[in-house]
Write a protein that binds this DNA or RNA. Structure first.
Length: 1094
RNA sequence: GGGCCUGUAGCUCAGCUGGUUAGAGCGUCCGCCUGAUAAGCGGGAGGUCAGUGGUUCAAAUCCACUCAGGCCCA
């Protein structure tokens, strides 16, 4: 910014700050840019105690939305605040650049789809496209971040695809491997046999994937023997008969009731039921009627009592067994009943056939019970074993019929049909999908579940329940982390496996790989496809070691950012750097990251700190505080989606309302973690209410301070203790605000910060202090005037400092004008609360004043006496001696009388029996603890106390009452004395005060009222005539009304003073004033006014 | 199906460890102010605190269940 544009002391704010805040904010942005303010603030904290913040990396291949503004505002506000408490906050940007979404985006762009087409296109070229694609919206992100004032160092971001980042990730993976926490297992996922690939849940969500098709539905008998001469079986239901040859167990729900039902065997037409004999079938109670129809129950057992029951396998043919990896299977456990919580009774029989290779639940059950994994259907979706005469290579769907036929021949089918079913199909080639156990790499996170749980207990979650419940339960149910993805664009897993033996090598750096391989290909960049060509001999058997084809789950990438952002441990100095920047003091993201980034950070962090003492990182939480924000919904509480067209464009919001208002609104409107309804109307209100008032307050201050007889900080002012009470009051409120706001910031409670600042600026500063003291700023003299300016100046400056983390722009505008020459507001330290300025007595008496003024105004309203009409007296009764004492202070009386335009306190007293009576009411909080069950009786007895007894209590004595038949001594602390109206006059009462206005008007009051009306009309005229506020005038008043003339005569000084009339008189016409103005003064009074500049 | 969150005035939200007239802003009705003025202020009306049951002398607040909305997982 050029020096000329830098604002000077008390300069006006940019002209359109209230109407077009965006324009004013752009000026601040330009200044920050040109003066390198962010860098300067950062540099100023070099060497200071760090506050560690980690930026969760966004994916730059989508445009940022309003919810990103939300999360970034939280992050920015906290980081700015900590900076203003003197901490050094490194704010390094990051980009998440790997993963399936990127690949899908590129496939779409290239007009290809599916792995075969990618291979055809060429993996090298494809990955190059991916590498470019992730930057599509980089500009949008950077621009939006800058625009909302999210200070982040974009000059040196971490990028998850960069070679150095990948190399750090390798190191971590190699560490996992070194500690024995990596294994090769299987993962069950939806699979397309034709494309030879698994589908992500993302792809399963594609339209047209789920289609209604006719599927077989079969109830099969799993025979367990003969009981009482009748064949006894477990009845299980399936819609995928092709999985039956791979069956290894049956699952029941342990808590459900199962019945052993006796059922007649089918008979020929016309034959008597039961003539062919009976059989016995186990089935869950809820389904017996629906499935079996006619039956008698022989026995009932809980599912858990069936566990262990052996049954005969359905097919005798041998079926291929595969190694699950995660556990050691044992056939001794197979062909038995096991318990599984996921079993339901909505359909089927409550007994579920288990084929671990073909179902996620089945797989998990198998893992739990050490079951073998059979795989009669291979990766192509075709039989790999001949079963019951069905030939090898039969497509799985086509195996259903012949297999069922075979079972039927052998009397193992109880019932079969074909039903309409929703079944997933490949979105590329329409082939029916099947769940299939594919090879996968795992991290054995379950091995240190307890450590993760313990570390989690040290995390300060905001709100706490996300950590304790949501995240805690998720950890409690931790399963091993499948880190491999059979895709192209990702961190290549650094695992080389031997073709000839089970040997594995985990490579921790490029240097190590080069050494092992004896050199690397030209242009090596540690991504596919080049890296797959790197092989080396097996140290064990001399065979060739090849890299596993998979890439890494990109969630591991982002979870590795604390280390990889510094190219740890490979880069020089990175170990020291990490030790300083670990663990994080604070992170913040959306609730959806619970199982995403929050988990991966935690899982990797707990591993590194617990298993790798050699790295020297402290055990415990990986991040000490984690603030979670909720989803941003539209104004009707509906999720924003392109389809509904209710997506809020952040740019539109920022252009219209500015970033400060948007930030403030997002933080102030409700708890950050609750789903947030984004209503532009609410934002407008926020802007007008808070920012409008703040800006107006500054404008008021600066306009008068800039006048020739105004004020400058260098003009000085009396010490606070020597200023009038109302100044000391605002000073005290200001300090209270400092204390409260600091506490709320420390607590990460940003909405409470907003609320505290709002009520200060609106109620205390603007609506009370400025309004009551306006005239001191232009009429005041000497020390009193200086005191007013200094008090208001301090309040505004403090507000700018306290609001800076949340509203960085307007705070900067204000601070640079209130305290020029001290640099950016964001480089300052937050003020410490000065308890020496806090006067709680004063604050309490002001509360009483405000309360009385409110009551007085209500009375005036009811009596139709506008404020301009002076009234004779106000009468006040109070039960509280303290309140009365506070009111007797001269400044309090003056304020009440001045604000209400009343001449005097007619009386100010306790009970007088005329306007009010005193009543005692039980103090429930105190007395409840003492008397417990007798509380109701005691409360009634207290309310029935005679006035004399109440007076005793009020004077501090004890009184005996009877509660529940027993005597009870109560003291003053047990009751709350209230005043109640006993008058037939119109009084206002709130239990603490009874207020009465004497509205009888005599001539003097009427005349003074008229004088005030005259002032009002003249000033309206001044304004209409476009006179400058300080312009002196000449004034003539003519009226046939004697009272009006009296008003002018009697209150000439008042009228002249209030209207700046240097020449004021009764008289007809005024030379040079032109035509008179007719003024209606109300109540039938009227006058004619001439007005001319002096 | 499971876990978690939310439900307070027409709308958006405050209401701490249970304590007796349940608050604010907007909107609405009525009025005021005019040396902060493309501003500002006051007063009124408006609530079975989602529902049911429980614990307690006392529940918007604690517990259980139900209903509605949302998020995550299956």
């Amino acid at each position: 910014m050029s020096p000329a544009a830098r604002p000077g002391l008390f300069d006006p704010l940019p002209e359109d700050v209230a109407t077009r805040p965006a324009a004013a904010e752009e000026i601040v942005l330009a200044a920050w840019r040109e003066e390198g303010t962010f860098e300067a603030v950062q540099a100023a904290r070099a060497g200071a105690r760090p506050f560690v913040f980690w930026e969760g990396p966004p994916t730059a291949n989508g445009k940022p939305g309003i919810h990103h503004v939300f999360a970034r505002t939280i992050k920015d506000a906290v980081c700015r605040h900590r900076t203003m408490t003197g901490r050094r906050v490194v704010r390094k940007a990051g980009w998440d650049t790997h993963g399936l979404p990127v690949e899908l985006e590129v496939e779409k762009k290239l007009g290809i789809s599916g792995k075969p087409e990618i291979e055809k296109y060429g993996v090298a070229a494809f990955n190059q496209k991916c590498r470019e694609s992730v930057w599509t919206y980089k500009q949008d992100w950077e621009r939006l971040s800058e625009r909302i004032g999210y200070w982040l160092d974009y000059g040196d971001p971490y990028v998850t695809y960069e070679a150095n980042y990948v190399e750090s990730v390798w190191y971590l993976l190699a560490k996992f491997h070194e500690k024995g926490l990596v294994y090769r297992g299987k993962r069950v996922l939806p699979y397309c046999g034709r494309c030879g690939t698994g589908l992500s849940s993302h792809e399963l969500g594609q339209p047209g994937v789920y289609r209604d098709v006719m599927d077989p539905s079969i109830y099969a008998r799993f025979v367990i023997g003969d009981e009482g001469g009748e064949r006894t079986s477990l009845l299980a239901w399936t819609t995928t008969p092709w999985t039956l040859p791979s069956n290894v167990a049956l699952a029941v729900h342990p808590e459900r009731e199962y019945v052993l039902a006796r059922v007649a065997l089918p008979v020929a037409k016309g034959a008597e039921k039961g003539s062919a004999g009976y059989e016995r079938l186990w089935i869950v109670k809820e389904r017996a009627q629906a499935v079996l129809a006619d039956h008698t129950v022989i026995e009932t057992r809980k599912g858990s009592a069936l566990v262990g029951t052996r049954y005969a396998r359905l097919f005798a043919d041998p079926v291929t067994e595969v190694e699950p990896g995660a556990w050691k299977p044992d056939f001794a456990n197979a062909y038995r009943v096991v318990a599984a919580e996921y079993v339901t009774v909505e359909d089927g029989t409550g007994i579920v056939h288990q084929a671990p290779a073909y179902g996620v639940d089945d797989w998990n059950t198998a893992a739990k019970h050490g079951l073998p994994v059979l795989q009669a259907v291979g990766p192509e979706g075709r039989l790999v074993n001949e079963v019951a005469g069905v030939p090898v290579r039969t497509f799985f769907k086509e195996a259903d019929e012949p297999l069922m036929e075979d079972l039927k021949r052998r009397g193992l089918v109880f019932k079969k049909s074909r039903d309409n079913h929703s079944y997933p199909h490949c979105w590329r080639c329409d082939t029916p999908l099947f769940y299939f156990a594919t090879p996968a790499w795992y991290l054995r996170t379950s091995a240190y579940k307890d450590k993760m749980l313990a570390a989690n207990r040290e995390v300060r979650w905001i709100p706490p329940e996300v950590g304790q419940k949501r995240f805690g339960e998720w950890l409690e149910n931790n399963v091993d982390w499948n880190i491999s993805r059979d895709r192209y664009w990702g961190t290549p897993l650094p695992f080389w496996v031997c073709e000839g033996c089970p040997a594995e090598v985990a490579v921790r750096s490029v240097a190590e790989l080069r050494e092992r391989a004896g050199g690397l290909p030209d242009g090596f960049d540690n991504h596919k496809p080049l890296i797959d060509e790197v092989t080396f001999p097996c140290a064990n058997c001399g065979g060739i070691m090849r890299r596993t084809k998979s890439v890494l789950d990109c969630w591991f990438d982002s979870g590795a950012m604390p280390y990889a952002q510094y190219h740890w441990p490979h880069a020089a100095g990175s170990r020291e750097l990490l030790r300083e920047q670990f663990p994080a003091d604070f992170i913040a993201e959306g609730l959806d990251q619970t199982r995403g980034w929050f988990y991966t950070l935690h899982a990797i962090g707990t591993f590194v700190t617990e298993f790798c003492p050699e790295e020297g990182l402290p055990k415990g939480a990986t991040y000490k505080a984690c603030a979670v924000n909720g989803l941003v919904l539209d104004k009707d509480g509906v999720k924003m989606s392109k389809r509904l067209g209710n997506v809020v464009d952040p740019w539109k919001v920022l252009d219209e309302h500015g970033a400060d208002a948007a930030r403030w609104y997002l933080l102030a409107s409700g708890a950050p973690w609750a789903p947030k309804r984004f209503d532009p109307a609410g934002l407008l209100e926020e802007r007008r209410r808070f920012f409008g008032t703040l800006v107006n307050s500054y404008k008021f201050f600066a306009d008068y301070a800039r006048l020739a007889d105004g004020w400058k900080p260098s003009s000085g002012a009396p010490a606070v203790k020597d200023r009038p009470e109302i100044d000391r009051w605002l000073a005290s409120r200001t300090q209270t605000l400092v204390r409260v706001v600091r506490e709320r910031y420390d607590d990460y409670d940003l909405s409470a910060v907003c609320r505290a600042l709002e009520s200060f600026v609106l109620d205390d500063l603007s609506n009370w202090y400025i309004r009551r003291n306006r005239s001191r700023f232009w009429k005041g003299v000497g020390a009193d005037k200086a005191a007013a300016f200094a008090t208001l100046h301090a309040a505004l400056e403090t507000t700018a400092l306290l609001a800076a983390p949340i509203a960085p722009f307007v705070s900067e505008m204000l601070y640079s004008r209130l305290a020029p020459g001290r640099g950016s507001v964001h480089a300052q330290l937050l003020p410490e609360p000065d308890s020496g300025l806090v006067d709680s007595d004063l604050e309490r008496s002001m509360e009483v004043v405000v309360r009385l003024v409110e009551m007085g105004r209500a009375l005036r309203e009811r009596a139709s006496q506008k404020i301009r009409q002076p009234l004779r007296a106000i009468h006040v009764r109070s039960s509280s001696e303290e309140a009365l004492a506070l009111l007797r202070r001269p400044f309090a009386r003056d304020l009440v009388l001045g604000e209400l335009n009343i001449k005097s306190f007619g009386s100010l007293a306790a009970d007088d029996g005329q306007l009010c009576t005193l009543r005692a009411k039980a103090n429930f909080r105190v007395l409840g603890k003492k008397v417990g069950g007798r509380m109701k009786a005691a409360a009634a007895a207290i309310e029935a106390l005679a006035p004399a007894e109440v007076a005793l209590l009020r004077a501090g004595s004890e009184v005996e009452i009877s509660a529940g038949g027993e005597p009870l001594r109560i003291g003053p602390e047990d009751v709350e004395v209230r005043v109640e109206s006993s008058a037939e006059f119109d009084v206002e009462t709130d239990g603490r005060f009874v207020v009465f206005l004497d509205t009888v008007l005599d001539e003097a009051l009427v005349v003074e009222g008229i004088a005030r009306e005259l002032v009002n009309r003249v000033n309206a005229l001044r304004k209409d005539s476009g006179l400058a506020v300080e312009q002196r005038i000449r004034l003539r008043v003519e009226s046939a009304d004697a009272l009006v003339r009296l008003a002018v005569e009697r209150h000439l000084a008042l009228i002249a003073g209030e209207t700046l009339a240097s020449d004021c008189a009764i008289g007809a016409a005024l030379p040079g004033a032109g035509f008179p103005a007719e003024a209606d003064l109300g109540e039938g009074h009227a006058a004619r006014l001439w007005l001319a500049p002096a």
